[in-house]
Design a protein around this nucleic acid. Structure first.
Length: 267
DNA sequence: GTTGAGCGTT
């Protein structure tokens, strides 16, 4: 058995001077070809900052593959930081070095190298949801006050696989000649015979995502007192709306744990 | 091929 000598081992702190918690020291102190995966973490960005706006200054240093602004899973509010994934990690490092401490939108942003690639919902679940120790019923959700205002209902997360996916990311700008799908064969589209007529019309600006920034003021809010359901009420809409547990519900009436894993409903 | 619920702030 090899035991680690009690030598003075300093915990891996942020190696890259993110100056702010970036890097997280998750990366081992080992010298690697690149100390990043091409992902940068940008902190201190305005909440109403758009991915495109962020991408612009960063693209100067390299090709940005993706820009992602994580939002609260439950509230849907931006958290004030963003991830910028570069195609080349070297460029990412350059961008990090140059953009770190730069003034963006009147704020000094901190750019650090991201730890790793994005996390999966599964990981997120464990992360955001504290797993209570089995045995004792000590239910203590002492993680950050995530569900601060649960007035708003989440955009129907993965659980509902709805197409309402709020993608606040802006995919890499595809240069012409490299179209992802030159011809999309529509299998059956009874609803819209034409698939996005004005989408690829000339040099239209790439607007892959229209977030709930509609009015800028509030994301998506139905505080009008109007209890409008986000989900579609189309006739076929409810057809989709089929609880998974309902179909596979055990005859014994045992509650599917799907409900437990499911995010907190609005009520 | 992907995945967006990413390391965070009051």
């Amino acid at each position: 058995m090899r035991r680690y000598s009690p030598q003075y081992y300093s915990p891996p702190r942020r190696s890259y001077g993110g100056g702010g918690g970036g890097g997280r020291g998750r990366s081992p102190p080992r010298r690697r070809k690149e100390q990043n995966n091409g992902s940068l973490l940008v902190r201190n960005i305005p909440l109403d900052c758009r991915a495109e706006e962020l991408r612009a200054p960063f693209e100067r240093y390299g090709e940005v593959r993706d820009v992602y602004i994580p939002k609260d899973y439950y509230t849907g509010e931006p958290r004030g930081f963003a991830f910028i994934q570069f195609v080349d990690s070297y460029e990412a490092a350059e961008a990090q070095y140059h953009m770190n401490g730069k003034i963006f939108a009147g704020r000094e942003i901190s750019v650090v190298v991201a730890a790793e690639t994005r996390k999966r919902p599964e990981e997120m679940r464990q992360r955001t949801r504290v797993r209570e120790p089995s045995g004792h019923g000590g239910r203590r959700s002492s993680y950050y006050g995530r569900s601060r205002s649960r007035s708003r209902s989440p955009r129907y997360p993965s659980g509902s696989r709805s197409r309402y996916r709020s993608r606040s990311y802006s995919p890499a700008p595809r240069q012409r000649g490299d179209s992802i799908s030159p011809r999309r064969r529509h299998r059956d589209n009874p609803r819209s015979p034409q698939d996005l007529p004005s989408l690829r019309d000339g040099d239209h600006d790439r607007r892959p995502y229209s977030p709930g920034y509609d009015n800028g003021a509030g994301p998506i809010e139905n505080a009008d007192g109007y209890d409008k359901k986000p989900m579609r009420e189309d006739k076929d809409g409810r057809d989709h709306w089929r609880s998974p547990d309902r179909a596979s519900r055990s005859p014994s009436g045992s509650r599917s744990r799907s409900a437990e894993l499911s995010p907190p409903r609005n009520r």
